[in-house]
Nucleic acid binder design. Structure first.
Lengths: 151, 151
DNA sequence: TATTGTTATACTCTATAACTATA
DNA sequence: TATAGTTATAGAGTATAACAATA
């Protein structure tokens, strides 16, 4: 139970948008933090994030670096680690000899699914006891959050 | 706009608690990720987190290490950095000569407030256009999330 | 003797700069 | 000459182990 380092500042109860923004931001960050801290995980956050990027499509190393907002040498090292773990593979690009395409191995895809499932379990466990009305509110809120975050 | 590495796996629309848990977890993690990435910040995440811990009370270094889930030597180094930046100070505990109490300086408190305000602004900006009903839904959802996360 | 914090050393992930291979 | 990726080296932040000061 990691407590929340960003929750202890005084603010007025919640009048307008500002109060809602504050409270909602903190609630989301708390959920996020606890999912990351408390879901059992075989791979570190950086490895997990790269695996997730590769779930839909193989990617050239450079694109992967840009998506993850790190430099090419950093991604090169991360990928080397993932290759050693058997989670991804490097292949030459047939149309451009300079490019190295990274893709999930079967074991990597399996590992990714397991990790994701464990994160969902953490959340589902905590939603079990809610009433149908409360679940409906959260469902509606989820759609709103998705809209808001995609702005 | 960092896209979401954990969002691309296929799943059924959202039938029961499992679907809601999945979608809601992703929405919270996306909000959290974008707040961290897109809010302008003078201090790194580790420094911010320690400043936030000290907002309400000064803390012995050992307690701070435990709260932040790092070992004492790591926290000792982090605190040394914060002292160099003028954000916190070390003081001896009058009742126990072994203990070093860490507290915010005025500059540290000021910096913390600014960082927090910037995070809230990011969120508030995105809630501006919502209808009163939608804001009411999010307010109710916030209370539910707080209940859920404190289980 | 046990506890609090620091120092010494090492590992991981990050970066920039220099290098190789290909376009 | 420009681009994709790797290798070399260095800077944070983390850890464990050994040490100093205090209880």
């Amino acid at each position: 139970m990691p407590s929340d380092p960003d929750s202890s500042h005084t603010h007025v109860p919640s009048p307008g948008v500002a109060g809602l923004a504050h409270d909602l931001r903190l609630a989301c960050m708390r959920i996020s933090r606890r999912v990351r801290f408390e879901s059992p995980s075989e791979v570190g956050p950086h490895h997990f994030s790269v695996l997730a990027r590769l779930a839909s499509n193989p990617q050239p190393l450079g694109d992967l670096a840009e998506l993850e907002r790190v430099r090419a040498p950093s991604m090169s090292k991360t990928v080397a680690g993932l290759v050693d773990l058997g989670l991804v593979q490097r292949d030459p690009d047939p149309t451009d000899g300079r490019v190295v395409v990274i893709s999930l191995t079967d074991w990597g895809r399996n590992t990714l699914s397991t990790e994701r499932a464990q994160r969902d379990v953490w959340m589902a466990t905590r939603l079990e006891g809610l009433t149908p009305h409360e679940k409906a509110v959260l469902r509606e809120a989820t759609a709103l959050l998705e809209r808001v975050v995609s702005q």
